[in-house]
Write a protein that binds this DNA or RNA. Sequence first.
DNA 1: AAGACGAAAGTGGTTGA
DNA 2: TCAACAACTTTCGTCTT
Length: 316
Amino acid sequence: MVTPKTDTEEGKHHEGKEDNTADYNETVKICPECGSKNLIRDYGRAELFCSQCGLVVAENIVDLGPEWRAFDFEQISRRARVGAPMTYRIHDKGLSTLVTWSPTGQGQYKLKKWQQRTHIANTTERSFIFALSEIDRMACALKLPMNIREAASMLYRKAMRKRLIRGRSIEGIATAILYITCRQYGVPRTLEEVRDISRVGQKEISRAYRFLLRELDLKVSPASPVDFVPRFCSLLDLTGDIRSKAIEIIKRASEEELTNGRGPIGIAAAAIYIAAILGGEHRTQKEVSDVTGVTEVTIRNRYKELSEQLDIDVLL
DNA sequence: AAGACGAAAGTGGTTGA
DNA sequence: TCAACAACTTTCGTCTT
């Protein structure tokens, strides 16, 4: 994986020289409000915020850029000497050198031919390339940040090393890998969302998902409703205020054990629905339903439970 | 007319014998 | 492997604004 972004000496070097929101974003790892390390990047709103208390730590974050930066010549030479940053998203980890055609060199021409033949020599290599491009395509469609694509690629590589891919659909595995990675990184996508941009059906994704969890010995804790809130809120064009309110409601609900055995998305949807009304930014059940993918009936059921048990008066 | 409500039947996934 | 089960969906008639 690409080197982590915390580079302390670097931070001191160029204070105030560059766009400081981005710098802030790269160095802050702990929420100043509650100390939680669980910061979530919300690319829909371009915000970095705390999943515990909802505090927006940084705004206008622009990640997705080059994985490293250099601020003086020494750093350039130190970091740039190997060429492109090593990345797992290229099938040979980006370490190969592509020799391009040159009209003068006969030797280079042969080398190029040799490269082409061996580069994509066998079918496993081919399918790996395909898998990575698929992961990239899907991650792109889901607007996932680069670090998740990297992690997904890494996980796929791991699955391949363990010979888990053979005889299975590459699409299914790749989709499941992405789904798992999103969960691990606290930016879950719903199964429906993943299915919509995948080329395989939900059943196959689920099968591959369970298979991978078992074989790779991964433990993915059930998604928290909180993790869905920022994205749903931004899709509904709600302010950060509502988002915080919704997260607050979910926290109280889970303390009262109202979330047990309930689908996290339904909880998130209901909390957002309530929060939006309380905050004067009313959204209809249908609107919330369309964005979250749970039915209005479920939203009603959850929101009835929540408002009654938590003594929240929801006056329309 | 649109939104909210809730009853009732149906669906797909999980669990435990 | 199968049946029981809970959560969720679909459908639809009714009430409210």
